[in-house]
Computed example of a mutant assay.
Amino acid sequence: MNKPIIDAHIHLDMYEDIDGMRIVKELEKYGVESLISVSQHLSSAHKNLTLAQLDGRIKPAFGFHPEQAIPKDSEIADLQHFIDKYINEMIAVGEVGLPYYLRQEQKNIPLEPYLEILQLFIQQAVAFDKPIVLHAVYDDAPLVCELLEKYSYNKAHFHWFKGDQKTTERMISNGYFISITPDILYEVEIQQLAKQYPLSQLMVETDGPWPFEGPFKEQMTHPKMIHESIRKIAELKRMDIEEVYLVLYENTKRFYSL
Rank of each mutant, 00 (worst) to 15 (best):
K3A: 15
K3S: 13
K3E: 14
I6D: 10
D7L: 08
H9F: 10
I10N: 10
L12I: 11
L12F: 05
D13A: 10
D19K: 14
K25C: 10
E26A: 07
L27S: 10
E28S: 13
K29H: 00
G31Q: 13
E33V: 14
S37Y: 14
H46K: 15
T50L: 15
A52E: 08
D55G: 01
D55V: 01
G56Q: 09
P60K: 07
A61S: 07
F62T: 04
F64L: 14
E75V: 06
E75S: 08
A77V: 05
L79H: 14
H81G: 06
H81V: 06
D84E: 15
Y86K: 12
E95C: 00
G97R: 03
R103D: 05
N108A: 08
Y114D: 00
L115E: 03
L118D: 00
Q119A: 01
Q119H: 05
L120G: 06
L120I: 04
I122S: 07
A125E: 06
V126R: 03
A127V: 00
F128K: 01
D129W: 07
V133I: 15
H135A: 01
V137Y: 01
V137E: 04
V137T: 11
V144F: 02
K150R: 14
S152C: 05
Y153H: 02
H157W: 02
F158K: 05
F161H: 03
D164V: 11
Q165V: 09
T167E: 04
T168D: 07
T168H: 04
E169Y: 10
R170L: 12
R170M: 09
I172N: 07
S173P: 02
S173K: 15
N174T: 03
I180H: 04
T181D: 10
D183W: 03
E187H: 14
V188H: 05
V188D: 09
I190W: 00
I190Y: 02
Q191L: 01
Q192L: 14
A194V: 07
A194E: 05
K195M: 03
P198I: 11
V204K: 06
G208P: 02
W210T: 10
F212Q: 04
P215K: 12
P215G: 06
F216Y: 08
M220T: 12
K224R: 15
K224W: 06
K224A: 15
M225P: 08
S229F: 01
K232F: 13
I241K: 13
E242A: 15
E243A: 13
V244W: 06
V244P: 06
V247Y: 03
R254P: 06
S257R: 13
S257P: 02
L258E: 11
